[in-house]
Amino acid sequence: MPIIVHLDIMLAKQKMKSKDLAEKIGITTANLSILKSGKAKAIRFSTLEAICEALDCQPSDILEYVKE
């Protein structure tokens, strides 16, 4: 996938654990792990909004497009 998810970096910057983020945004840790590992096929706007709110960042801080 040419879309890279930088959720790990943002979590480290905010010193937050995956479990806490999952709880805060209301998704399972398994789904968050799918997102972090780049296996996810799509992300809902509502999830992205919740992540941005929880990590106090912009969507561009989490997602990056890299040409293959």
Partner: peptide, 8 residues
């Protein structure tokens, strides 16, 4: 269905 399961 697979895509739906991988939609977060």
């Amino acid at each position: 269905e697979e895509e739906n399961e991988l939609t977060v």
